[in-house]
Write a protein that binds this DNA or RNA. Sequence first.
RNA 1: CGGAGUGUAGCUCAGUUGGCUAGAGCAUCUGGUUUGGGACCAGAGGGUCGAAGGUUCAAGUCCUUUCACUCCGACCA
Length: 412
Amino acid sequence: MRQSELFTKTLKEIPKDEKSKNAELLIRAGFIYKEMAGVYSYLPLGLRVLNKINNIISEEMNAIGGQEIFMTCLQNPEIWQKTERWSDEIVDNWFKTRLKNDIELGLGFTHEEAVTSIMKNHVKSYKDLPCYVYQIQTKFRNELRPKSGIMRCREFLMKDLYSFSRTQDEHNNFYEKSKEAYMKIFTRLGLGEKTYLTFASGGVFSKYSHEFQTLSDAGEDLIYVDKNKKIAINKEVYSEEILTELGLEKNNLIEEKAIEVGNIFSLGKKYSEPLGLKYLDEEGKQQSVIMGSYGIGPGRVMGAIVEVNCDDKGMIWPKEIAPYQIHLISLAKTIEEKERTEEIYQKLLSLGQEVLFDDRENLSAGQKFADSDLIGIPLKYIVSTKTLAEESIEIKERKTGETKIIKIADLK
RNA sequence: CGGAGUGUAGCUCAGUUGGCUAGAGCAUCUGGUUUGGGACCAGAGGGUCGAAGGUUCAAGUCCUUUCACUCCGACCA
């Protein structure tokens, strides 16, 4: 991508109506646009990152047997009435709207009811189970107070997987597999070291649920972390009882603020029973399906990555999700130098590299470097009179500032 | 939803006890000089002063209502 053709621009100043680091940097770098509080659009650079996050999540969900679907935002009240989640007294963050004929609809804040209805058409026999479906789709939650930039929105993307199992053992088996898949995802996203499996309140059908919490001062949750055992307890369930249950000692725990980047729940028959999702077992008896739900918010994850990986100059993207791998910065002056820089760009493209090419004219080196630092692409490839004279390119790492010189002929 | 704060150019802000044609920096456009860490000179375009109503000879400024945004708290199935 030629930066001269990229429609987004960078801002020098901090937007007044954003205090969170993630929104400040993402807006300044032109990754996102704030439509209103808790509602953000993704611009080209931001969308590239978001898509890469989604791809990693999809790959890991596919790897444990997930089948991708795409459900609707608009929700039929009938199924939600069956689980008693339609009422505004019980669920206080519904967005609701109306058809022309005045019938009420909802904008989905989660999809247990919807997915269970779909599965009723397809799950009939024990032979159809277990089954795992997921989607990456927009959710709407009428939050009283959106905050923390893109980390707590009224409209946001969510990966939600739903598991359908025959027995509790079968469910538990998948539940454990999902924990591993989640840790793999967060490791690939560059959050592995700071992300802890965290015990949290479970709801009706299990004692605990599990959250994945990334340590950060920008977080909204307080957790107690055992860094050696790589485990944490959310303050909401912290007690003497859980300490003994998990074999943890008070002295080894540190209180930390953290961002909830994922969570997994055992749902039991909470939704399958009221909605009638049943199958016939080997003996021809009807059984209710045992369910689980597994969420990750890709937008929130993107915000968390910015919070955890930035410095006073801007963002620092991990390689696998950077909008581009290489920021080719042209400091060429003469026409001949510009042509040779263009050749380098073409060569990198032909090698299959993802390159943002800063080919903008009449900008000082300082401006280009400052923009590059803000955008946070992992590697700068700097081409100037000096480097061209030596048939070389200077490579500078965004994270460490380390530089090295390579020959143009050695590009790969 | 309770508390606090802020709304003036695309962005960040100034604007005195109400006073004449509402300003600056950044960004944008033109010309020139620059070119390895956010350069400089000259000129130009860009405003329903968040909105509605009111007081006044006169309102960005005072009053009433309202909307939006930020932060703290509550909430987050």
